[in-house]
Amino acid sequence: MNNYFVRRILQIIPVLLIISFIVFSLVFVAGDPVALMLPDDASQEDVELLRESLGLNEPFLVQYGTYVANFVQGDFGESYRYGQDAMSVVLERLPATLELAIAALLIALVISIPLGIWSATKQNSGIDLIATGAAVLGKAMPNFWLGIMLILLFSVSLSMFPVSGRGTLAHLVLPSITLGTGIAAEMTRLIRSSMIETLNQDYVRTAKSKGLKNRIVVYKHAFRNSLIPVITITALQTSTLVGGTLITETVFSWPGMGQLLIQAVNTRDMAIVQASVFVIALLVILMNLIADLLYRLLDPRIKYN
């Protein structure tokens, strides 16, 4: 099993290289940052000079080679806008994003686990119908719209929570609900269908035939078995989560990586874009690795060789 994880960790390297190439190409294609960096009245000579000093006149592959060489040494370049090492700018913003993402994930789990189990055990009842309807609605609402509606209702009309920014726990409430709703909706539906499947398994009938309480049959025997697909999707959801943070952070002016990335894209701050995408990619890979570890803990049949 240790071998397996060493191998999995080593596999991260080629994945990151491929990601770096894609990101680099996209930023390269997106255009020349020099025009945005210099004032409008800059002369053609100044432009050329800056291009030369930034190495932007080199051919694509040479630029990429330089980039990878630096990146391997942990140097993601300097942000044009902040005049600092890009990675440290990104890492400064990381805690805010993690805080938001974890809060959203917690909200999603707290809502979806009981709701999913409940509607599975009371299949086709009124409760199930309402839960399924709510899940469809939650999935259908776009993040940015939900965020704006929540701001309108709770911040503007009711003055219960701050409109934007980060700081107190109250600041976290609306953004995490905005981000968590879609994930909760997806997971409720998933837990429901996974539970319905496990509740029909023979071992659940065996558990019932032993005279166990319904609660134990559902939560011990069925739920644990239905968790495996749920974990897969939760791990996959982290990429949605990251995508969601981009939008949510912008709506709520949440000073996280998502907001930084959007700004960096708008200003063609290549170094920041590359460093942020690198960190996001690493987070997604790590989440998948954690999911693999959890499978092993949950299901003794899964062996890694």
């Binding site: 398994q201 023979d202 071992y203 065996t206 035939s209 025997h221 644990r224 078995n225 949950l298 003794p300």
Partner: peptide
């Protein structure tokens, strides 16, 4: 009243 079933593999919970 106790019961045993046809398929012993699926009748035992795989994760316990």
């Amino acid at each position: 009243i106790a019961m045993i079933f046809q398929e012993p593999l699926t009748s035992l919970n795989p994760v316990f």
